[in-house]
Design a protein around this nucleic acid. Sequence first.
DNA 1: CAGTGGTCTAGACCACTGG
DNA 2: CAGTGGTCTAGACCACTGC
Lengths: 265, 265
Amino acid sequence: MIPTPTFSASRLDESPPDEPARNGAPAFSPLYQQIKALILRSLRAGEWQPGEAIPSELEFAARFRVSQGPVRKAIDELAAENLLLRRQGKGTFVATHAERQVQYRFLRLIPNDGDPNSEVPAQRKIIDCRRLRSSAETARALELRTGDAVLQVRRVLSFDGQATILEDLWLPGGPFKGLTAERLSADQGPMYALFEAEFGVRMVRAEEKIRAVLPDATQSALLHVDPGTPLLSVERIAFTYDNHAIELRRGLYRTDHHYYRNVLS
Amino acid sequence: MIPTPTFSASRLDESPPDEPARNGAPAFSPLYQQIKALILRSLRAGEWQPGEAIPSELEFAARFRVSQGPVRKAIDELAAENLLLRRQGKGTFVATHAERQVQYRFLRLIPNDGDPNSEVPAQRKIIDCRRLRSSAETARALELRTGDAVLQVRRVLSFDGQATILEDLWLPGGPFKGLTAERLSADQGPMYALFEAEFGVRMVRAEEKIRAVLPDATQSALLHVDPGTPLLSVERIAFTYDNHAIELRRGLYRTDHHYYRNVLS
DNA sequence: CAGTGGTCTAGACCACTGG
DNA sequence: CAGTGGTCTAGACCACTGC
C-alpha cells in the first residue's frame, strides 16, 4: 500500500466508527492507537486464549499495512497495562493469572517477616456459594439492575494454618453460570485462573477501598479472633477489558502477622 | 561522530564504570539505558531544579552524538517513573510536588462521597518537631547508624474541620539541618514541596505497609476518637533518586469518612 | 513563526530462544 | 539456523505552544 501522506482520521477503518468525534475537534488519533484498539478488540473477542502467543510484530505490520514502529508501540502499551506479556526471542503472549510467576497478582498481603516476593501457598476453604438476587448496592457496583441474578461466594484463606482472610464475592449470574462450591473447592491455583479457563472472564484491573473496621460476631468467629480485633476491610471492584466491572469483593484481613503493601510513585 | 558499528559496551563513557559486569556476561547495556543513567546523574546532582525544563530531545541527541530515538526512549522511561514531566509543544520538566495538579501525590486517602480527584484542602497542625538520636529501628529504615541525629515531627491533618490523620515523621538530621516547627507551620502546600525548595530533597517513590490497629491513649486524644476505634496504620518509607531512603513516616488514618484507595493492575 | 514533543517509515543490525 | 522481540539511524512530517 502506498503510504497516505496524512492520516488525521484513520487508515485502518474496518468498522463503523464508534466515536466519530462529535465535537468540533477532528479528534486526531495516531496509528498506533488505532492498532491498539484493534488488538484490544481481538483480545476481548477471545481470538487468542490466555497464555497463547499473538501474531508477531511483523505479521501485524503486514496485516495492517504499516511499519513495525506503530505496531510495536501499540503492543508496548498493552504490555504496560499487563494485558500482554513480551518475551524476547519467543513472542508476545496474552496475560494470564495462571502462571507461577504472577500468581495472586492482585493480592497485596505480605507476611511480616518473609520477603515480599515469597510464595503464597494459601489454603483455601469455600464456606458458601449461592445464587441470589442482587441488592441495589451490588447491582450498582456490577453494572447490573437490582434483582438480577448474582452469585455470592464466601471463603476463608489461611496462611501457615492460621485463618487470615475472610472474603465475600459477588459475581454476575450470566457470565458465571454453572459456578458451584464444588467446582471452586476442587480447584488448585488462583481463583482468577479458574475464571479465565472456565468462564472466559479475564481480570485486568481492580480498584480497592481500604478501611479499618471491627468484625461482627460471625466474622470474628470465622477468623478466630476477638470481636475487638481491628481488621483491614478491603473492598475490591475488578474489571475486564474496557473497564467493565465484573466482580465485587469484600475482604477482611488480619494484620497481626501480615501487612498490606503498596508502592507509590 | 561516525556511528560505531557495534555498541556492546558503551559509546557514552565519561567516567569509570560503576559496575563493570564482574561476572562472565558482557552485561549488554543499550544506548538509551546509558543516556537514562546520564540524565539521572544530572538530576541527582541538581543540574536542573524541580519545575525547570531540561534540554530538548534534539539537544541531548547532539550532545550525546546519537539520534533522537534513544534519547526519546530514555526520557520516556524517566517520565513513566514520574521523575520527568513531558508537555507537548513546551518541553520536558523536572517533576515537582509543588504543582496544583499533582499536590499530595502520595496521599491515598479519599473522602467517602467526594470524587477521587477532588481537592484536598487539608488543615495542617504541627504538634511537635524535635531533634534526637535515632533508635536502632529508625536507623535501619533510614540507612543511618543507631544514634545518628534525626528530626522527629508530629502533626495532625484535618479535613472539613475533623482531625483525620496523625502522623509521625523521622528525617535524617544531615540533609534536613535547619528544619523547625516554625518553618513547617508557616508553610502552605505539601510538605514535600517545602523539602524540595528548602533542602533539595526530592521524594520520588515510596513504599507503604498498611495495617489495622487500635490507638493508644495519646493517639486517640489527638484524633478525638474512642480508644476502641479501629484505625489504619500507614508506615511509609520514601525514597529519593537511586532508591535512597530519606524519610520514615508512621500515619494513623481515621477511615469513617475516608478510605485508602489503591489500584491494582 | 520557530521550537518542542509526538508519530511514522524503511532499513539495518543485535540479543535471545528453540529446533 | 530461522524467527522473535529489542535497539538504532536518518529523515520526514504532524500537533501543540507561545511569541
